[in-house]
């Protein structure tokens, strides 16, 4: 069970995990339209081409807007639900929280189809807002999970102390609770933002004729000549999400340091 064999396996497994990702930068800078070895030479041409595609820019802005709105909304919904779940006992708590967390274990296609049917029945035009509706639904459980642990690790007597010292419920929330769960809020926004930015199925069903970035990508995958451009775009997205992740981890660490608590692993 021990030692060398396992370590070798671990390295091989990492290679497997990274195999597709490594191709992104490799072929993004490769001077050839066919994605195959041997490499043809270095170029930044694909990145230059990226800047000229109008439809791509539209989809990027659309996606960013959707992701940002989703991040804010699902974090707000998450704040309410996580606070209630972490601090209060109320009737039918299990059932209510169960329904709210259900999207975690529901295949996304089910959520997408169900929403599509209802929206069409109600005669609502598909567009960015309908995608946001769906994304908030699937991101809220993640926000709740993050914020719940933030609220649980917040010593309740801190809030009581503030209340005892003369503050109201609301000013206590503003002066004590909010600053102390702020790292959780930021993590929640970043995670929701990332999930929304990457989500395909729901967007595919609900986006109408304003594609999000993944939906636009999907439409481009059919054209072999566009592949290197997609690779370049993928590289940019990879770098962007790494930056986001690093930021999330930084805020989490800072939160831990600020409250002087013991560090207990990453936010995953």
């Amino acid at each position: 069970m021990k030692g060398r064999g396992l370590a070798t396996y671990a390295v091989a497994y990492l290679l497997f995990l990274y195999a597709p990702v490594i191709l992104l930068p490799l072929f993004a800078f490769n001077d050839g339209t066919i994605i195959a070895f041997p490499l043809q030479g270095f170029t930044t041409g694909w990145f230059v081409q990226l800047t000229r595609i109008e439809a791509l820019h539209d989809s990027v802005f659309n996606s960013l807007w959707i992701a940002l709105t989703t991040a804010v909304l699902s974090t707000c919904f998450g704040l309410f639900a996580a606070r209630a779940s972490a601090r209060y006992r109320f009737p039918a708590k299990g059932g209510i929280m169960g329904l709210i967390m259900l999207p975690l274990v529901l295949p996304e296609i089910i959520v997408a189809v169900a929403l599509l049917v209802v929206l069409l029945q109600l005669g609502i035009d598909l567009g960015a807002w309908t995608v946001i509706l769906g994304h908030v639904l699937i991101c809220t459980p993640f926000s709740i999970a993050i914020l719940n642990s933030a609220f649980l690790s917040l010593d309740e007597s801190l809030e009581e102390a503030s209340y005892d010292l003369g503050e109201t419920k609301w000013s206590t929330f503003r002066l004590i609770t909010l600053p102390l769960v702020m790292p959780g809020i930021i993590s929640s926004m970043l995670i929701a933002f990332t999930i929304s930015l990457d989500e395909f199925i729901i967007a595919f069903f609900l986006t109408g004729n304003e594609p999000t970035l993944p939906v636009y990508l999907w439409s481009q995958l059919r054209f072999p000549t566009k592949i290197p451009i997609v690779m370049a775009l993928g590289t940019i997205m990879l770098v962007a999400s790494l930056l986001l992740l690093t930021a999330a981890e930084y805020f989490r660490r800072r939160g831990v340091a600020r409250t002087g608590a013991k560090d207990s692993g990453g936010f995953l």
Binding site: D155, S157, L158, E160, A161, S162, Y163, D164, L165, G166, E167, T168, L175, I176, P179, L180, R258, T259, G260
Partner: peptide, 29 residues
């Protein structure tokens, strides 16, 4: 309510606000 009573409490965990300095803690009320 607690915030209107002429009582103040020293909590078992002390409940020192971790994001405030010592002075800000004492001046909180």
């Amino acid at each position: 309510p607690a915030n209107k009573r002429p009582t103040n409490m020293v909590f078992q965990s002390y409940a020192i606000f971790p994001h405030l300095s010592v002075g800000e803690n004492v001046g909180f009320g």
